[in-house]
Design a protein around this nucleic acid. Structure first.
Lengths: 167, 167
DNA sequence: AAAATGTGATGGACGATGTCAATCAATTTT
DNA sequence: AAAATTGATTGACATCGTCCATCACATTTT
């Protein structure tokens, strides 16, 4: 019936022979699987740096650097996390002296985030490493990389915006 | 210098105005961010089912169903996990009566995995839900979805194979 | 045959993660 | 002024991924 039901119901001894079935047509599966591999690779590259483990720290570091005064909730949206998760990350970064939190002058509820000098330095350091992270996909041609990047970027923004709409 | 450094160093109040900087050219970032959104959505769809939370259980359920007698280590490779992580998942599924583990007749070290009837039933149920998971990307056209699926599938297999080679 | 080496699967421990609900302060609405 | 809303934070809880050690079985070496 469905594509990929050719070699069904047979034991396999090699991963290459595995038929993914429904999962083969499911974007979620590939995103979720690749996430593990990519995260592992990035953590290895970041070694014992203060931003290792987790997407949130790196995203926060870069976005605060690029948009001084940005608010925690915007960071949360961009990183697809909820506010409480981002609050923890910021707390951690604060303890490590990477960021500074100021209370907004106009609205007393919001916080304005800034990188400390230490944060700026780390951001530069991490940026160099992140640029190298493309090496993980060394098997993939520049064209393919660019294509998938464009497509995922588009999907990303649409998801961000629809998440924004809902809550 | 680099693409995307146009609107630099300005505070933003809306996510849409955020400039991702280096991250904008980093596949890892989009994969890692989208992973969170996709995982959340899938967990919501699966509600309180016995396979909710985590990619591993669903992958195991489907692959065992499609390849009766498959070994845990192959499942681990396909799900991009390590053996111990997969062992926990299988243990959990065993406790819930979803799978059956037999010791291989030829090689006493390996296990052969099979779905129980309960497991088969759940697999069918979950398959229906997984098929609906494309709805999460309702903003994305069929063409785009197919394109990004093809590209990620290709990347997935290359990563799986290179992981296989290394360790 | 015995010993050493290798491989598949488990289990414990640890830190980190994501989520939910509750709280608190500040602001906006009525 | 009271009520409802919003931004941020905290505690609690379950889960996850990783590392290290262990155990059983196989294969290779001597």
């Amino acid at each position: 019936m469905t594509a990929g039901e050719s070699g069904s119901k047979t034991a396999v001894t090699r991963v290459e022979d595995v038929d993914l079935g429904v999962l083969d047509g499911t974007l979620s599966f590939f995103i979720r699987s690749l996430n593990l591999a990519v995260t592992r690779d990035l953590d290895a590259r970041l070694g014992g740096m203060e931003v290792a483990r987790g997407t949130g720290k790196i995203t926060a570091l870069f976005l605060i650097g690029r948009h001084p005064g940005i608010r925690p909730s915007i960071l949360a949206s961009a990183a697809m996390k909820d506010r409480s998760a981002m609050a923890r990350i910021l707390d951690d970064m604060d303890k490590h002296g990477l960021i500074r939190r100021e209370t907004g002058h106009e609205d007393g509820r919001v916080q304005a985030l800034y990188l400390t000098e230490k944060g700026e330095a780390l951001a530069d350091e991490v940026e160099a490493i992140v640029r190298q992270s493309r090496d993980f996909f060394h098997d993939i041609s520049d064209e393919e990389y660019a294509q998938v990047l464009d497509l995922l970027r588009g999907i990303y923004w649409r998801v961000v915006k629809s998440r924004q709409a809902r809550g």
